[in-house]
Amino acid sequence: MNAADVALTVDGIPVTVAAGASILDAIAQAEIETPTLCFLQTLTPVNACRVCVVELEGARVLVPACARRAEAGMKIRTDSERVRHSRKMVLEFLASTVDISTAPAMQRYCAQYGAQPQRYGAESAKVAQPVKIDNALYVRDYAKCILCYKCVEACGTDAQNTFAIAVAGRGFDAHISTEYDVPLPDSACVYCGNCIGVCPTGALMFSSEYELRARNEWDEAEQSQTDTICSYCGVGCTLTLHVAENEIVKVTSPIENEVTSGHLCIKGRFGFSYVQNRPEEES
C-alpha cells in the first residue's frame, strides 16, 4: 500500500484503492458488480443516470459511485434497501420511457432489480419518436435514448472535439440534437461514429446493423470479431471487424486500446466497403 492509497470498506469488505480512484473502482475491487449506464472509463463521468448510486455512511442522500472519489474511511453499502430501491426505480423510469429492445445490459439490470416498467400505465409519457435516417452510414433512433450524455461527450471534448450534437431542451423534453435539429449532413458531424461506439442502448446504430435487424438477419452469435489495423493512415488504430457471411457488418475498436481508446474516424469506422464492393454481387 502506497502512502497515498485510500482504505475504505464496501459492504463490510476492506479494500484499498489508489488516490483519485472512484467509489466504483473500490466496489470493483471488492468484486461486487455495479450497474452503470452513463459511465464509461474513457469519458468524464456525468453521473446522470444514477443507476450506480450507493449508500455512504453519514451522507444524507445516496452518492454516485462513478463520479465520487473514494476517501479514506468511507463505509459504502451497495446492497441496502435504499440502494436497491433507487436502482430499481431508475431502471423502471427509463424502461417505461424508452425502447430498450436493443439494450441487452439494461434488460439484464431490469431483470436483476425486478423493475416493473409497466406499472406506470400505458399512458405514461415516453420519448417515442420516428427514427432519424438522414445519411448512409448510421441511424439515430432517439426513442431508444436514455440521455446518458455519452454521445455528446464523445462528440465533444472527451474524444472528437466536433460538437455536432448537444443536449437541447430541458427536463423530460431534453434530447440530443444538432443545432435546430438539422439533418446530420448539414451539421458539423464528421461521421467518426464515436457516438455509436459509446451508445449503451443501440439508439445510435450502423446503417448496416439497422438494415440487417429490420430484415431479422442480425445474429451476433453468428458473427466473428477480428482485430486488425486500419488501412488508411499512420495512426495505427485497431479495428475490430464484425463479420457475418464474409461481410463486414460493423467496425468497432477496443475501448482499452492504447492508440484509440475505442475511438476511430470516418475512414476507419465506415471506409471498409471497398473490400466488399464486389462486382459479381452488384450485378
Binding site: T228, I229, C233, G236
Partner: peptide
C-alpha cells in the same frame, strides 16, 4: 488480397509501433 483484412501480417504506425493485421475476410475471386 487486402493486407489489413484479408491476410495476416504487420504494419508500422507513425509512432514506430509495429502492429498485427489479421485476416477477417476471404478475398474475392
Amino acid at each position: 488480397s487486402a493486407g489489413w483484412c484479408e491476410s495476416e501480417g504487420t504494419v508500422t504506425s507513425s509512432e514506430r509501433r509495429v502492429q498485427r493485421c489479421r485476416k477477417a475476410l476471404e478475398p474475392p475471386g
